[in-house]
Nucleic acid binder design. Structure first.
Lengths: 343, 343
DNA sequence: ATGAAAGCGCTAACAC
DNA sequence: GTGTTAGCGCTTTCAT
């Protein structure tokens, strides 16, 4: 509404002139140096405050070789021009923001093409940020390894993989897949669909848990029941509709996000099948909507707030020059109506 | 995992030395100056790329007096140490991130105490960001006015108020309140509870719409039906439980967020009342969960993606030195089962 | 207790 | 076409 500041931004010289002292005195005063006479210090402080002067951090950082900015990178599908929409991504970004704020760091939120995760390194190379938190490995474990190999301080939300040079923090995906699938089997499900793109490491680990649970039960995995859909609801719905239409028999669904699970529910209903009576459904993430949905979702809970703290602490550990071991955070199944306990 | 870079960060001098030229040549080459011989330019480019060198933006910005960083400020309740959790805030942050990325700006995500919105101005004063987008006016219209008066480039998501010096972008809250309440009246509701803290301007405007709709219908507003709850589910649930227990008669609820609406639904059910048969409920925001919830929510849709674009464009207008007029974005009621059309 | 001056990494006159 | 040099706004020796 009001038009902008043509008023050149104040700088230390201005304060110095107004206070009738030199810039070094202002600098020292503003930084609380005890070298400066307490009352001049106070006077300069007052003056600066009354003029809303604030030290230029760009210049200060350059001089001090410091920087308190961490980049949080949310990859996106450039082809689909897909926007940040999955609530899980948004809430983990919120959790990281909280953790960084608590520790006095600034957060630069960036989006990069999921096919070029390595391009995030420019944020570090250019000094915009002193470290990177990347949300998800996507399909580029190798690029992340390369970044770590050239000593870019980076922590990744995702699964722990063999031959991993970077620090990852993630939920226990195998355990999540295992618990979800075991629960469905225990309910008596015999043919359980797996919804998620196993080219993503996290999903692949959940898929391992799924297969392991099937193996325990002596059940054969059926490739026709694996739906390699991305974290994107339109595609998920289409794939589920197709599965329903195909005539392939199934009585359970394990979906790799709550949103995917709810799309499955809708597709099933559209096909005239009841949840959980005909088909039980288990989701992943335990976002708030899982509580309110119809039916409330049985889902694998991910500790989002803890995730934010762990990601940040791991990165700060790296920045201190220490090694940061990958962390696998506990997950647990939350029982609700989409797949209740067997009666 | 891997430990950090003790390797001092490369700088232009290093590239210059390795290329056997002066820093100015490197600078020009890297900035694509045609003054430089095409092949030396290419050679230097290759060298820099192969070493992952990237111009130090802190220094560059200092020299060029430029900066492409916009701060997005999410206020929070410091007393409650409440975290970013309302899905609406998170999704508008996502929308702003998309809009800024498209336009080549960096986004600094900051949290400030909702009682000290003016503290966000330091981000500008210190040169961290060239402009501010603040999510919500909260209870400090005056602080925002002060910031605008001293020419801080700021745009606020929120309602348009009288005597407003800053640029706001927001949904049409009066229309939203009007449509929601009219719809409930049209269904035959006679006693409609209003759930939301009218000390917040946006909520107050919705409340105006609510009162206007009641007036149109010749209905008397009853203060006992106004629940001044914050955007926080625990408090909302408690207030709704209390209303149910109080014996105050009501047959409709207009809640100022979808999350509040769903808490109302849960409280009503706990009190043995059906939605929408006994009490119809209308929410606000039209977040994804409104589609999936039980019952799906009739709610006022806010154009989140558009909001991101408008906020960013308004700020860029200010930064260009032009005036940016406040914008009120259209909202519309989405009919679902929590308050279906009258039969 | 305060000031003068050098320099953080970069760019852009101004030389040659 | 390329090098030399003077700052961008700040902190910090080193003087006084």
């Amino acid at each position: 509404m009001t038009s902008p500041s043509e008023a050149k931004r104040l700088q230390m010289t201005d304060i110095a002139r107004l206070a009738g002292v030199s810039v070094s005195t202002v600098s020292r005063a503003l930084n609380g140096s005890t070298l400066i006479n307490a009352e001049t210090r106070e006077r300069i402080g007052q003056l600066a405050r009354s003029l809303n002067y604030s030290i230029n951090l760009g210049a200060q950082n350059l001089r001090l070789q410091k920087n308190q900015t961490i980049a949080v990178v949310v990859p996106y599908d450039a082809q689909a021009r897909q926007h940040i929409s999955d609530p899980f991504f948004l809430s983990i970004v919120g959790a990281i923001a909280d953790a960084l704020t608590d520790r006095g760091y600034d957060m630069l939120l960036s989006r990069v093409d999921a096919e070029r995760l390595d391009s995030a390194a420019t944020l570090y190379d250019s000094g915009k940020a002193i470290g990177l938190i990347i949300i998800g490995q996507w399909r580029h474990h190798d690029q992340l390894n390369d970044m770590a190999a050239r000593k870019v301080p980076v922590v990744v939300w995702g699964g722990q993989l063999p031959q991993q040079l970077y620090c990852s923090v993630g939920g226990d995906n195998v355990a999540g897949g295992l618990q979800a699938t075991r629960h469905l089997l225990q309910r008596g499900c015999r043919r359980i669909a797996f919804v998620g793109d196993a080219r993503l490491p996290e999903v692949d680990l959940r898929h391992q848990g799924y297969r392991q649970a099937l193996a325990e039960a002596g059940s054969q995995p059926d490739p026709a029941l694996v739906l390699p859909v991305p974290f994107e609801i339109i595609a998920a719905r289409a794939a589920m509709d197709q599965l329903c239409a195909s005539g392939t028999a199934f009585d359970g669904v394990f979906a790799c996000s709550d949103l995917l699970a709810l799309q499955a529910v809708q597709a099933l209903r559209a096909a005239g099948r009841q949840v959980p009576a005909d088909v039980a459904v288990v989701g992943y993430d335990d976002m708030p909507l899982a509580t309110y949905s119809d039916p409330p979702l049985t889902t694998v809970h991910q500790p989002v707030a803890l995730a934010g703290v762990e990601l940040v602490d791991a990165l700060l550990t790296l920045l201190r020059g220490e090694r940061a071991a990958p962390r696998v955070l506990p997950v647990h199944l939350v029982l609700r109506d989409s797949a209740p306990l067997p009666v």
